[in-house]
Design a protein around this nucleic acid. Sequence first.
DNA 1: GCCAACGACGACAACGTTGTCCTCGTCGTC
DNA 2: GACGACGAGGACAACGTTGTCGTCGTTGGC
Lengths: 327, 327
Amino acid sequence: MKDVAAAAGVGLKTVSRVVNGEAGVSEATAGRVRAVIDQLGFRRNDGARLLRQGARTGSVGLLLEDVADPFYSQLSRAVEEVVRAHDSLLLTGSSAEDSARERALALGFCARRVDGLIVVPTSADHAYLAPEAAAGTALVSVDRPMPGLEVDTVLADNRAGAVAGTAHLLRQGHRRIGYLGDAPDIFTAAERLAGYRQAMADAGCPVEEPWIAMGRPDPLGLRFALARMLSDPHPVTALMCGNNRTTVAVLRELAGRQERPALVGFDDFELADLLAVPVTVVAQDPALMGRTAAELLFRRLRGEPAAPQHILVRTRLIPRGSGEIPP
Amino acid sequence: MKDVAAAAGVGLKTVSRVVNGEAGVSEATAGRVRAVIDQLGFRRNDGARLLRQGARTGSVGLLLEDVADPFYSQLSRAVEEVVRAHDSLLLTGSSAEDSARERALALGFCARRVDGLIVVPTSADHAYLAPEAAAGTALVSVDRPMPGLEVDTVLADNRAGAVAGTAHLLRQGHRRIGYLGDAPDIFTAAERLAGYRQAMADAGCPVEEPWIAMGRPDPLGLRFALARMLSDPHPVTALMCGNNRTTVAVLRELAGRQERPALVGFDDFELADLLAVPVTVVAQDPALMGRTAAELLFRRLRGEPAAPQHILVRTRLIPRGSGEIPP
DNA sequence: GCCAACGACGACAACGTTGTCCTCGTCGTC
DNA sequence: GACGACGAGGACAACGTTGTCGTCGTTGGC
């Protein structure tokens, strides 16, 4: 900027005025300054600008498990749209379900003075974010609650969804229903498992522990779990899958086996309706969740709601075939 | 920081030293300062730090068409991993194929003084980035070249891939092959169409213009295009699809029709192998492309390669069934 | 012809850090 | 006991902006 001012033969403040389109500069001077700016390729340094103004930085951080997971990538896109509508920029980070990594990313974002943070929190304690919240950083938790901190939260009705999915299988006459879920320390995994148990209990259907397999959805683990559930002298006749990753991995394993149990998956996924046996799912609306979370964040930045909001997004059972196979 | 210094009864520089773990502070003083920092919830302002140091900001911008597209979300994730390995943060933006929007995002990122920019460029001229490049911002173009600027570029061998896919259908005996691609101003769409034409020409197979439909993959447009190609008195017997969005949309349309043409898709996609008729594809490796682009960017930041690099990532034909249907 | 009002512009401080350089006190050595 | 060396810590400027306020010249009104 100094160079521009010198080259145009004006003061620093005049360049600033031109750059920001402020009044008080004659058209002649402004034109001269603009010419020099173009020629020198000058760009305002927003870092310095924000430092001086002490205002919002116009940036928001998004922390989730994995951008490559379709559920999160849709959520991510919805967040981005809202952020863009508010003329803000988006910083993204994948925690890979590692709380240390999440923490490092979150603090890194905050050191950059993001206006707010939208987080899909790991199960670890998040009290370390209390100072940021106190400093005015808007925090929104999405998909899961944030342990150790009271913040705006957007959740799906995981339990009701799992109940609906399991009940659907029970209605087809299944009594021996397996449950394959994500690692049990993940909030949604625990909630959905609880929903499954509740539906089974409501139906007076005892659950045998070998029917339940919880853990990160890796092919080998799922192969063993399925072998155990399906090769048993009393095999399960239906499966409930805890999330889209698990459902897809299970479908892939089942393709290599003879058994064709009924199946309901939590989370909708692309092409679920075009498979040989279309997959019945309990659908979430990741875009709605992302949009809601982002809007909550900007409302919070406007200082609107006093107390932290808790929003529940409904799930929806979509029968497609795989859940309608009788035992 | 002033508050911390005052509360701890030390000078500003001492707080700075403690925060940055510099030597020259007694353990007693350091402990006192740390206690005050914890109590006040002080966090260093990286904006000011970077301003003072004039160094790199440790942040990278990623601009692509749509984070929710599985191709880009995988690419995105790979970029993120490399960025994280270099202790940098990632700003993400979706251009939605709108060059004005891309430009606004790019300039916004640059105003934040990102160290570099990884871009999936729209077809518009990108000369506006020349000043940024001159100012030392590393630029990498991925998936498509950047019109109007010579930068490091990572491309798939689109043409060879399309040739391979089309030739595969020709080998099955197809002569009347339709091509459904993205908007023709998109580099990859044009290249792949050229590959299709080339393979057809090489086989001495004349192409009739009604067999070709180029445009954003919207269901209605594709429905008409397919109706035209398949209901013709001389219908096409096979289809080549230009990208994953188109392939999926076409599969969905075909599910509502009687005809079962052979089909090869450009881009692999999840569950392609589990469909009723598994889909033969020309697979790209989006993660490799993202990783390569990001590594190129950091090499450039280290000042390594003199001239802009151009890297070609190979595609791979994966026969699965849908392409092996004879006419 | 004088003065007020106004428009155009610049000087300067401040935002929150850190690099440089300086001061001050203590300790060891001869 | 004097002196040098060294460790701890502080004062100050600077990074690139912008808000505040002041200056200067011109114009219009009476």
